[in-house]
Amino acid sequence: MSKAPSLQLDSATLADEYDRLGIRQFNHGLQLLDALDLRERERVLDIGCGTGRLTESAAQRVGAHGEVLGIATARRRRCRMRRRTRESR
């Protein structure tokens, strides 16, 4: 029987470095957002949102009347995502 994947790859250091280390992934995410052609008032579900950097970009595209929900399993990255969204309001 296979072992369930571990979510123990959550550390303060990795959370701090997540945005810097994931710049290439973020840039690909921006290309995806461009291809989706998000409009004001639309809704977005960002699964595996990490620190919420791309989630924030999606929120800017859908505007104040749109909705974006980010889901992250790593607690420290989730905390940074929440902080990021509070600061951008």
Rank of each mutant, 00 (worst) to 15 (best):
R61F: 08
M81F: 10
R61N: 03
C49N: 05
A12P: 04
V62D: 08
D16G: 05
E87Q: 14
Q31C: 10
L54V: 10
P5N: 02
D10F: 05
R75H: 09
L54C: 04
D10Q: 04
L45P: 02
V44H: 02
S88M: 15
A35F: 00
S57R: 09
R24P: 00
R77G: 02
S88G: 11
C49S: 08
M81P: 06
G63M: 11
Q8K: 00
H28C: 12
R82A: 15
Q31R: 13
A12I: 05
A64L: 11
L21G: 07
L9F: 08
R20M: 04
G22W: 09
V44N: 03
D37W: 05
F26M: 06
E87M: 14
E40Q: 14
E56L: 14
D46C: 01
L69D: 01
A64F: 05
R20I: 03
L45W: 07
T73F: 14
T85P: 00
R78M: 08
E42M: 09
L36R: 00
I47T: 02
R39F: 03
D16N: 11
R53C: 05
Q60S: 02
G29Q: 05
L14D: 09
R76M: 03
T51C: 06
T73W: 10
R84H: 12
G70L: 07
R24K: 11
I23W: 09
R78E: 10
S2P: 12
R80E: 00
R82T: 15
I23K: 14
L33K: 07
R20H: 08
L30R: 15
L69F: 10
R78H: 08
K3T: 03
I23E: 13
R83H: 14
R82D: 14
E42F: 01
R75I: 04
P5M: 05
L21W: 12
I23T: 11
E42R: 01
Q31K: 15
P5I: 02
K3Y: 00
I47N: 03
G50M: 01
D37N: 12
A58L: 05
A74Y: 07
F26R: 07
E87N: 13
Q60A: 07
D19T: 06
R39G: 09
G29S: 05
L45V: 10
R39L: 12
E40R: 11
D46S: 01
H65K: 13
L36Y: 00
